[in-house]
Design a protein around this nucleic acid. Structure first.
Lengths: 222, 222
DNA sequence: CCATCTTTGTGCACGCGTTCACAAAGACAT
DNA sequence: ATGTCTTTGTGAACGCGTGCACAAAGATGG
């Protein structure tokens, strides 16, 4: 029986082995003392816990460049996701296959959602269309939404929304880039930029616990 | 003079007002006691601190669906970013304009980087091309990389890499979706899924502090 | 069957960030 | 000018997650 010790896994993942063991104990994944964890059983347990063993049908609304990129993305299938349908408001797109899946018109959105039992929707529309699309998705029964449009969506209680702002990631890189440059510059003066920035970098105010990075202050001007 | 109090800002952002004040104090943004913060000055200070007042030239390598989507993304300019060049390995793409910018062939990558003083690169290539492209970018002087390809990039010390895995966001939604469903089901049995999952959700082991969500265990099978 | 060795599972303490609570500071009215 | 009222800035306490260190448990060899 192939096994791994918490020590090996911790080294590979770059975390503390005690923390890893504590987490596994919560999962109820019992290892064997003196031996380690049964790899196969462990993989199964974690997969199940994360929902990888389930089949999640998703719909992608808005088949522009981004929507097409998502439809072609290879990483979905291995994670338990199945693109159940592609939806676009442009009648000219209807029927045209993208990533092997024919695009359907948004008039049929509600029907598509209910017929496929979809509970997760991806919005890749322009900003203006995002909220109306969101409302229709929610009304049709979708309870989790991944939003790529640069808008804040308002949804009723019980619906999860995650917003992916592609420029935020760049923002974070630029922030660190600036710090790199700032530290060099501050070497000359006394009390340079880095001293001012450092505490902020540690304890920046978080607008939302779901923010992508705890290392950056989340309060920023529009 | 238009002002805002920390209380108002905190309410709007959904955070504790003391935390917000403490953060602002690190910035050196002095407010006026009894009045609040001068909005205009505050916006300027935060913008400067985050690097929004600087001009960051970036190059996008790999002009497929995703690369094109990024090139067309409107949110970059307002955040201080300027797409300095689009680069693709396909000779057929060379010269063709995407988002108003002509695509250049990857043979000229090094020249493009140095001539434009680019320090931030975006990789939107297929997985196989990512590491070689990354190496060339770094060799040419890029010190921050935003990676959309589904590969872990290895870079020398001093270079920042942020990986955007589009399927991870979906994963997180599915995880919460499962918890929603699990809680209902567990209402019947004693000691259902939620009790097991809850502690994990709080204290999941983090492979990387830069992970996108502290609310989910980061250890998962490949 | 006993001794030893490995690895898990976890109580406990440390450290850090968040929050509370209040004194200091300035505006504004009288 | 003085008092009152509002809001900032921050010292101190609290709470939580992380990491240490060890006892319990099982394997393995003699």
């Amino acid at each position: 029986m192939p096994t791994v010790s918490s020590e090996e896994l911790a080294a590979a993942a770059g975390v503390n082995s005690a923390k890893l063991r504590k987490d596994f104990s919560y999962l109820g994944s019992y290892g064997t003392r003196g031996v380690g964890y049964d790899v196969e059983y462990l993989v199964y347990q974690i997969s199940r816990e994360l929902g990888l063993t389930q089949d999640w049908p998703v719909v992608i609304v808005g088949i522009g460049n981004l929507g097409a990129a998502l439809a072609n993305y290879g990483g979905f299938a291995s994670r338990g996701f199945r693109v159940a349908a592609l939806i676009d408001a442009d009648p000219a797109m209807a029927g045209k296959p993208v990533a092997g899946i024919p695009v359907q018109h948004s008039d049929d959105l509600e029907k598509i959602i209910s017929e496929n039992g979809v509970s997760i929707g991806v919005i890749a529309t322009p900003a203006g269309a995002a909220q109306p699309v969101c409302d229709r998705l929610v009304a049709a029964g979708v309870t989790s939404i991944l939003n790529f449009a640069p808008t804040v969506l308002s949804v009723p209680e019980g619906v999860d929304v995650r917003k992916v702002d592609l420029s935020i990631e760049l923002q974070i890189l630029a922030f660190h880039e600036q710090r790199k440059a700032g530290e060099d510059a501050a070497a000359g003066e006394a009390g340079g930029v880095s001293e001012v920035v450092a505490p902020v970098v540690r304890g920046g105010a978080a607008v939302d616990r779901k923010g992508p990075d705890g290392d950056m202050p989340a309060v920023m001007p529009a």
